[in-house]
């Protein structure tokens, strides 16, 4: 496999980065990077590490990173987690910024620690912490429950002062959304599977609308909706499909849809095959919307969609 960390890869312009990675020879990984400057979304780093942890350390080749911003990669723990000797040193007096380095989350205890550490590390106020820890918890539990990822979940996050937002990346190398959803639904493509996974009331664990006692099929819909209400990006990539929720313009009212394809979005179906799932999300901290108000909006759409889906499956008596 070959992956190139580019000059710029944010959720808005992530497509060229995803299209460029080479999935051949899955037991080896070659990492290269832009020579001058690297400025990337946390999901890019989570993906690089997820690929690296799928190989033996001796099979990872990482070129000498020359970019001026190479210290960022070091601080984000990219090299240490992959056991790469980068030769990059960090001076202790350098400001650390507000970020959560790349972390491998394998157990529930790891997740609890990650969520607990996250709030002070990102200097979040209580009202800002609510959606962020909600997203991290639900996404990571999806990995534990559905993905069968041997490397668990790879997470990291960064606060950006200029735009006053938190960006979160999470990647796994599990079975992917198509296989999970296929346990209960007939799906012919990664795109169909992602569409269903984002639809309220759909879970891979049962065909029953509303789910089981343990899974409601609400997690991804809630997360996509949090991004939408905040007018932020949300990206989900699994198999060969990328689904990207685009930002809602500030001058337009936000409307939530049960069908993710009705949201303003872009998608591509012929990306290099990603074994597992990767999710990237941005959350603006400028939002004045209280989390509880946002949840009320989500509740209304969720209930409406589940009602409509139940009607679709409602069978009439057949009189002959």
């Amino acid at each position: 496999m070959k992956i190139h960390i580019p000059n710029s890869a944010w959720l808005g312009n992530i497509d060229p980065f995803l299209k460029s990675f080479d999935t051949s020879r899955p037991d080896k990984l070659e990492i290269t990077a832009h020579k001058q400057w690297i400025s990337v979304h946390p999901v890019v780093l989570s993906m690089v590490v997820a690929l690296g942890l799928s190989c033996k350390p001796k099979n990872i080749i990482c070129e000498q990173i020359e970019a001026k911003s190479k210290h960022y990669l070091k601080r984000m723990n990219l090299f240490d987690i992959l056991k790469i000797k980068s030769g990059i040193r960090i001076e202790e007096h350098e400001p650390a910024g507000r970020f959560i380095p790349i972390t491998q989350v394998l157990t529930k205890q790891d997740l609890t620690k990650f969520i607990t550490d996250m709030v002070p590390l990102l200097h979040l106020k209580p009202n800002q912490a609510q959606p962020i820890r909600y997203i991290v918890s639900e996404l990571t539990r999806n990995v534990f429950e559905h993905s069968e990822s041997k490397i668990g979940a790879i997470l990291c996050a960064q606060y950006f002062q200029k735009s006053n937002r938190i960006s979160i990346g999470i990647a796994d190398r599990g079975v992917g959304i198509k296989e999970t959803i296929s346990e209960s639904y007939k799906v012919s493509s990664d795109s169909d599977a992602i569409r269903l996974a984002l639809t309220p009331g759909v879970t891979g664990t049962t065909r029953r609308i509303g789910g089981t006692d343990y899974n409601a099929g609400a997690g991804l819909f809630f997360i996509k909706s949090i991004a939408k209400v905040n007018r932020d990006f949300f990206v989900i990539y699994s198999g060969k499909t990328l689904y990207k929720l685009l930002k809602t313009n500030r001058d337009k009212p936000v409307k939530l849809y049960g069908d993710p394809f009705k949201d303003k979005h872009s998608k591509g179906k012929n990306f290099p095959y990603w074994q597992g799932t990767a999710v990237g999300i941005d959350i603006s901290l400028d939002s004045k919307e209280e989390f509880a108000v946002l949840l009320e909006l989500i509740r209304n759409t969720y209930s409406k969609t589940v009602k409509e889906r139940k009607k679709e499956f409602y069978k009439q008596a057949k009189f002959i």
């Binding site: 209580p126 609510q130 820890r133 909600y134 918890s137 639900e138 539990r141 789910g211 006692d213 343990y214 899974n215 409601a216 609400a218 997690g219 809630f222 989390f291």
Partner: peptide, 9 residues
């Protein structure tokens, strides 16, 4: 302070 829908479910 907060709960997830998964927890309440």
């Amino acid at each position: 302070e907060s709960a997830t829908q998964s927890f309440i479910h």
